[in-house]
């Protein structure tokens, strides 16, 4: 692991001030994500996964510690449009077509018109939505909308992809399919991906590294390097190596729960 750090968090602390007292969402979180890694974050609800991801995206400001993205502060990285963010809900604009939605960040970032067209076409093919460019979001299924939102995050040149439970609301079969596609996409684009999930199989299947978190206060309890090969057909989930990793993740999650 001689590769450079793309995201680097040092003793990150974040306390939300709420009307019923402070909520300690992140405590002493340190983590390095290297270029080209696929890192999953897993943990019970409220353990700060979303908050951590939002800190990387400069949507949340840590109350302590430091975080750098691409070697600069999170804010500078955001201004330099260093990452694409996929929210849990697709969040497509109902008044724009699928193509128009994917084009939106490109318009905002001032890409040339002809370049926009080419990119929209390319990323829609990438998520297998070619032919749906002129459809409106309500004409698409939930899974297709989520794919469109991923395409939107891929359309511009950001080499980091932050994904917050992008497949959380989808059924198992669609999810399997999208997981497979996502892995291919990751291999092809060589992006660095930070991926939040609730699903152990999903985390194990996708990741090169799995970060287990636990709540109150939100912290990292285990970081698991995946021994699985880069080439991962869906059947890999029945192999012993896969089950071993899943087992370790489950143990980590259970350990985090003991102090409740």
């Amino acid at each position: 692991m001689s590769k450079e750090s793309v995201i680097s968090a040092r003793q990150l602390d974040l306390t939300f001030r709420t009307s019923d007292g402070p909520v300690h969402a992140l405590k002493d979180v340190s983590l390095d994500i290297k270029r080209g890694e696929f890192v999953s974050f897993i943990g019970p609800s409220g353990c700060g996964k979303t908050t951590f991801l939002r800190c990387m995206a400069d949507l949340e400001h840590p109350t302590g510690g430091e975080i750098s993205v691409n070697g600069v502060s999170a804010e500078e990285a955001r201004r330099a449009r260093a990452y694409g963010y996929v929210f849990q809900a697709a969040g497509l604009y109902p008044w724009r077509t699928i193509g128009g939605n994917v084009r939106l960040p490109l318009e905002i970032m001032g890409y040339e018109r002809s370049d926009q067209d080419a990119r929209v076409k390319r990323v829609l093919e990438l998520v297998e939505l070619d032919g749906f460019e002129r459809k409106y979001p309500w004409q698409l299924s939930g899974g297709m909308q989520q794919r469109a939102s991923i395409a939107r995050a891929l359309a511009f040149d950001a080499d980091i992809l932050l994904m917050d439970e992008p497949f959380g609301a989808l059924d198992e079969i669609v999810r399997d399919h999208l997981n497979e596609q996502l892995l291919k996409l990751w291999a092809r684009t060589e992006k660095t991906i930070a991926f939040v999930t609730h699903s152990i199989p999903e985390a194990v299947y996708l990741s090169t590294r799995i970060v287990v978190m636990s709540p109150r206060p939100g912290r990292i309890t285990d970081v698991i390097e995946s021994p699985l090969p880069a080439e991962r057909p869906l059947e890999i989930r029945d192999t012993q190596a896969f089950l071993d990793v899943a087992h370790r993740v489950r143990e980590g999650l259970r350990a985090g729960h003991v102090d409740d």
Binding site: D58, A80, F87
Partner: peptide, 27 residues
């Protein structure tokens, strides 16, 4: 909030957020 955050992730200017998000949403 999510739609506004989204605009932030693209580092959109206030005017861009107005013309491309707030105004069409208000129609």
């Amino acid at each position: 909030q999510m739609q506004l955050d989204q605009m932030r992730t693209w580092s959109a200017s206030g005017a861009q957020t107005f013309w491309r998000l707030r105004l069409p949403a208000s129609m």
